[in-house]
């Protein structure tokens, strides 16, 4: 009887063991499949032309203007060859730099975004609070988000106390389009950043950037 019981418990444990190994064997790919979205990367960032606005339409202290950025956009399995990937606000703050020679243009384009900001701010229209579309305020002297009343100055910094946003509006890397004979157009690297975070972290991977606090 005892022998029979031993045999039974051995078979029992063997059955449990094989079943367990199988569950892990099938479970691992199933889990990997489920967390596949974690491996999806954000769109590739490259300098893209800002359409619908020319630099000579802006003036220091004048009303900001909006431009549109188009690129190939991949939505899962669907490819949109020429879709709007985002919009930007252009705010001129200082005088236009001297771009009279190709060398000067190249030198200006090589500057950092922060250095270029003495001439022009380029913001994404996405609110750093929770991602709504930031508009100009009624007076045109600042920005206002329609969702949770986040407000920003023309330099993109948070306006009043009690502002729900944790950082200022997100600046984008940009340069003057050297292919434009009038040098009146700019190109940007359009990116979106994590919402509701004091840090400026690009979505879909990439290095942390300095926020506009």
């Amino acid at each position: 009887m005892a022998e029979d019981n031993n045999r039974r418990s051995f078979l029992g444990w063997l059955t449990v063991g094989i079943g367990g190994i199988f569950s892990v064997f099938l479970g691992v790919p199933v889990v990997a499949y489920v967390i596949d979205p974690r491996h999806r990367k954000g769109p590739k960032s490259a300098m893209k032309l800002v359409e619908g606005v020319k630099l000579n339409e802006l003036a220091p202290g004048g009303t900001p203007l909006q431009g549109v950025v188009r690129d190939t956009r991949t939505d899962g399995w669907t490819l949109y060859p020429n879709d709007v990937i985002g919009r930007v606000w252009l705010v001129q703050v200082g005088a236009r730099p001297d771009l009279s020679t190709p060398e000067k243009l190249a030198e200006f384009n090589a500057r950092t975004t922060a250095e270029k900001a003495s001439y022009l701010f380029v913001f994404t229209t996405k609110c750093p609070h929770l991602g709504c579309f930031v508009n100009l305020n009624g007076a045109g002297n600042g920005f206002a988000c329609p969702c949770h009343s986040a407000t920003f100055n023309l330099d993109g910094q948070r306006a009043a106390a009690g502002n729900p946003a944790q950082r200022g509006m997100d600046t984008l890397a940009w340069e003057i389009d050297a292919d434009d004979p009038e040098l009146n157009r700019i190109k940007v690297i359009f990116k979106s950043y994590e919402a509701n975070n004091a840090e400026k972290i690009p979505l879909g991977g990439g290095d942390k950037e300095t926020p506009n606090l």
Partner: peptide, 20 residues
């Protein structure tokens, strides 16, 4: 318009989609 492309995505792009 999307069914085939989504199955293609499962088969060729998603982790272990080919196995599932």
């Amino acid at each position: 318009s999307q069914a085939w492309a989504s199955v293609h995505f499962i088969q060729y792009q998603m982790d272990f989609g080919w196995l599932i």
